[in-house]
């Protein structure tokens, strides 16, 4: 039995254009949101209050990542802005820029030891940065379409990147060499995400079942270890635009064109609940590391904070 929730704990208003990414700090005490209004906003999830607005990007902000210590925030933007910016979270001041991508930076990840940043872009490249020296270390090439997601393995020796061509690739961080390819064998994906331990890879997309008038949103989960499709989730009306794993990789959140967010139990392979408050495409979803919150946001400019734990 699926539960439907329509009232989030907080609706965070302030962004004045599409919200493209949301992410929680590692201790779950902060929520960062990135907008097409060129701002990054830091919120207190407990009170729903806006703490700081980070200004400096001159174009849309597409992605965010907290460092493992939570002291630094990285943000990715478009190519006519500084591609990746780094911010000191406590003071809200910019501390660096990483220039090199020549198209939208779509995802960023810090290595577990916090020494490296990986960024992926619509320019089809993955770039590894020694961010404290603001130096590009290596450019990983091989994706045939825009690259949309990136994550490090827990030991930091490898990273995975995923492209809209639905092929995930594993790279050796030291040598920059391609180790493995994981084809998801789908024509096209709108949303891609890795689980925190990099054991799984999720793809959100759409598919029109025979006889149906609308495409149906679907999410598929692959086990990366043996490149095996383990689950398929159906339920969204129309395309899925965002996917995210919970920190313990037991749950998956999906957001879609239909304005809903769905929460899935990956152990049992069932839908847990549907969250309805958005009135437009849900472009991003994120779990808090402590499992208490789920944040969702998108084209209606609002950020919904759902208490789920």
């Amino acid at each position: 039995m699926t539960t439907t929730l329509s009232k989030p704990k907080f609706v965070l208003r302030g962004h004045t254009n599409w919200v493209y990414d949301v992410t929680f700090s590692p201790d779950s005490s902060r929520l960062a949101t990135a907008g097409w209004d060129h701002t990054i906003r830091l919120w207190d999830p407990m009170s729903g209050q806006l703490n700081t607005t980070l200004r400096g990007h001159s174009t849309e902000v597409y992605c965010l990542a907290f460092s493992p210590s939570g002291e630094t925030l990285a943000s990715g933007s478009a190519n006519n802005d500084s591609g990746v910016r780094l911010w000191d979270v406590s003071s809200g001041t910019p501390v660096g820029t990483l220039l090199g991508h020549n198209n939208v930076v779509h995802d960023i990840a810090f290595s577990p030891d916090e020494k490296l940043i990986a960024s992926v872009s619509y320019d089809k490249t993955v770039r590894l940065w020694d961010w404290q020296n603001q130096r590009e270390r290596v450019v990983l090439q091989g994706h045939r379409r825009q690259v949309e997601a990136v994550a490090f393995t827990s030991d930091g020796t490898a990273l995975c990147s995923a492209s809209a061509d639905t092929i995930a690739r594993r790279w050796d961080v030291q040598t920059g060499k391609l180790i493995h390819e994981y084809p998801a064998v789908l024509p096209w994906a709108h949303a891609l995400a890795f689980s925190s331990t990099l054991s799984m890879f999720a793809v959100g997309y759409g598919h029109r079942p025979p006889g149906s008038r609308r495409p149906q949103g679907m999410a598929r989960i692959w086990h990366l270890r043996d490149n095996r499709l383990v689950q398929t989730m159906k339920g969204h009306r129309n395309w899925i635009y965002s996917v995210a794993f919970s920190a313990d990789a037991q749950r998956l959140a999906t957001g879609g064109w239909d304005g809903t967010v769905k929460l899935w139990d990956l152990r049992r392979g069932v839908e847990l609940m549907t969250l309805k408050n958005h009135i437009d495409v849900v472009r991003t979803v994120a779990f808090s590391p402590d499992g208490r919150w789920l944040a969702s946001a998108g084209y209606d400019q609002r950020v919904c904070l759902w208490e789920i734990g």
Binding site: T59, E60, A78, N79, N80, D81, N103, V104, Y122, Q146
Partner: peptide, 16 residues
């Protein structure tokens, strides 16, 4: 977006 404030002139990234 500002980056692609070229309307619908999708010479690159047509599908995204």
């Amino acid at each position: 977006p500002v980056r692609t404030d070229i309307g619908w002139d999708n010479h690159i990234n047509n599908f995204p």
